[in-house]
Design a protein around this nucleic acid. Structure first.
Lengths: 192, 192
DNA sequence: AAATGCATGTAACGCGTTACATGATTTT
DNA sequence: AAAATCATGTAACGCGTTACATGCATTT
């Protein structure tokens, strides 16, 4: 492991700033709370936690928890909080959004129309499932944290997800219409 | 280089399926035509092109072009077209959309409100610039290719960009409003 | 006792970026 | 001739995923 200053580090620090926990806990928390725009894998979590501990940003704590289960837990330290705050000040990078769906779309003249439609239908289904899940996430957030502005920020991220998924679904519908037009044209051309 | 079956390979094949060219040409073409949802770096382009040639998917051609400039050019072969078509049939993977902006947003209770607003304003500006550029891209596409369904597919990808950027700008506005409310509340709390 | 699942971790690998190096061509 | 920029490439590195390994706890 090299000196990491990537966002994984701060995702972990941030989660620990909400509540202490183990790598396993963090993984679940990430998935449940920000899973629609972030992910962390064990392969990163554990090494980064170790490094953060070595740097004195978080405090490892042997935990012989409630039921005797679970083991290595961490709590964030003042130094970690400071690091996190500093990171928050810096402009977030604009991530290049590579979309394989769009790439295929761009070359779709080489594929049967039905195949392209199928891909879009699939994606539409995914985003509709996402839309449904945002309601659950929002409920959970409202339960977990009633205090402002904490909650406001969380709800804003959920709203982002909704805007995003809604936009994609709209595009899917629009594009499905276009595709059926194309298919219509091909049929008529074949008749002649 | 190991056996790659990643999308870079197919992005290159796809571009060569439109017109033959060098690595440099491809880089520019990618940027101009699908730059808003895809990117390729020289560090990938050149090795992958070599590998594709070795596999017999594309044909290397010494080019002593119009003006004596440019060197190693490639043209796609039947085998390459076949590979490309096969790839098009497969369901595109749903890419995890990691957003650093959203991550910061989620932890923003730890930062001054003005900083968060600034980040959002920046992103908003970026997306508004993107929105403007889609018009230019669309114009270019209409000029380059009038034949259907080629053009339809290309315009569909542009439309995706618009939906996406529009959604983000909307969210930015909404969130900026939320933030100024939060700031208002903080001010009033300080008065007391 | 065996099987399943929980929790923690490691190793290896591929992708993609960044930074650097180099020649060839055009511009000044 | 010098400077700039075009064009091609390589090397190194970091990030993140995947697959694997391992023990402990719980269930059957």
């Amino acid at each position: 492991m090299k000196e990491t200053d990537a966002s994984s580090k701060f995702a972990l620090l941030g989660m620990l700033s909400i509540c202490p926990g183990s790598g396993y806990d963090i993984k679940k928390l990430v998935q449940a709370s920000i899973g629609y725009f972030w992910s962390e894998s064990y392969g990163r979590i554990y090494p980064v936690l170790k490094e953060l501990a070595k740097k004195g940003l978080i405090q490892p704590e042997r935990r012989q928890g409630n039921n005797g289960r679970g083991r290595q837990s961490y709590a964030i330290k003042k130094e970690g909080m400071q690091d996190l705050r500093q990171w928050l000040e810096k402009s977030p990078r604009v991530e290049p959004n590579r979309s394989e769906l769009l790439l295929k779309m761009f070359f779709s003249r080489l594929a049967p129309v039905e195949v392209t439609s199928a891909h879009i239908l699939e994606r539409k289904a995914v985003e509709e499932r996402n839309l449904a899940s945002y309601n659950r996430v929002e409920e959970q957030h409202r339960k977990d944290h009633t205090k402002n502005p904490e909650l406001s920020y969380w709800l804003a991220t959920v709203s982002y997800g909704r805007h995003r998924s809604r936009a994609i679904v709209d595009w899917c519908n629009e594009t499905l219409a276009t595709l059926s037009q194309i298919q219509q044209q091909l049929k008529e051309r074949n008749k002649k």
